[in-house]
């Protein structure tokens, strides 16, 4: 909660402390008449695991695209890794990692070739890439897979590898867009262990997920509904505030499906827990 207090005293778009890696002030994004993001305000701190929840169509993806420099806000101030999302998206891109819901490595390249490719794209020197590759493969106990095509690996391994590649260039923030979709529970647990390790190294983890048990693992979570952030706190505080036993209960209480989107609840079935 100490972190939360800091954020509440902030009033300008300037990063509040050196520990703030994302600052969002009055962010509005419109597509024509449709308001996808309606006046968002939040901070994310260094080394934090920040869960970004919301039903499909709540505006998560739009916000994520703005934060990762893919899209420009209509109004408001967004600072990511010390750069303005409106003016310096290219700088933001250099300082973040990204892994998406769909699997993001190339199936027809080997493990090593994929690592080389992404290392190269992020401007790492060849020496550094080789060094980190060795470390990365060792940490994953992957050494014997280095020359294998990605297509031959099981999905769980692929996801772990994709995550390792996304943080290989030591970004300030890594965005994970539903990273554990379709992965078995054991791999999911291992995946979250990797997330913890990464956050402990000082890399901020910004994660969207539909698995409510995963939301419990986050330091703080925000819940979006119809373009607005309707709740933002630690999982424990939210459960207390909404008098709920689990984050899932909180989520269902807050993010009630609007009549236009009756299918929302089906995306978060209890059976997933």
């Amino acid at each position: 909660m100490a972190k939360q207090t800091v954020s509440e005293t902030g009033s300008t778009g300037v990063p509040l402390t050196s520990n703030t890696v994302i600052t969002v002030r009055n962010l509005v994004k419109k597509f024509g008449n449709f308001i996808a993001n309606d006046n968002l305000n939040f901070e994310v701190f260094r080394g934090e695991i920040f869960g970004f929840l919301g039903a499909n169509g709540a505006g998560k993806t739009t916000a994520l695209r703005i934060l990762s420099g893919l899209s420009s806000p209509t109004s408001g101030k967004v600072m990511v890794a010390g750069y303005d999302a409106k003016k310096e998206p290219e700088q933001i891109k250099k300082n973040i990692g990204y892994m998406c819901q769909k699997f993001s490595l190339y199936n027809d390249l080997t493990v090593r070739e994929n690592i080389m490719l992404y290392g190269g794209i992020y401007g790492m020197s060849k020496k550094l890439i080789l060094e980190r590759t060795a470390k990365l493969l060792e940490r994953l106990q992957f050494e014997e897979y280095g020359g294998r095509l990605i297509a031959d690996l099981p999905l769980g391994l692929k996801q772990k590898l994709a995550f390792s590649v996304a943080v290989m260039h030591e970004p300030k923030i890594v965005f994970l867009d539903e990273p554990t979709g379709g992965v078995d529970p054991i791999t999911r647990r291992q995946f979250w262990e990797m997330i913890y390790e990464t956050a402990a190294r000082g890399i901020t983890v910004f994660v969207t997920t539909h698995y409510m048990d995963e939301a419990e693992y986050c330091d703080r979570i925000s819940i979006m509904n119809e373009g607005r952030i309707v709740a933002l706190d630690t999982p424990a505080n939210l459960k207390k505030q909404y008098n709920a036993d689990s984050v899932e209960e909180v989520f269902i209480k807050i993010a009630r499906p609007s009549p236009a989107d009756p299918g929302m609840l089906q995306k978060n079935p209890k059976g997933n827990n």
């Binding site: 973040i96 990204y98 190339y106």
Partner: peptide, 14 residues
């Protein structure tokens, strides 16, 4: 289709 385009667009490549 494979989702790699998103990753490339988020990367420093223009």
């Amino acid at each position: 289709e494979f989702g790699t385009m998103e990753v490339l667009l988020v990367s420093p490549l223009k």
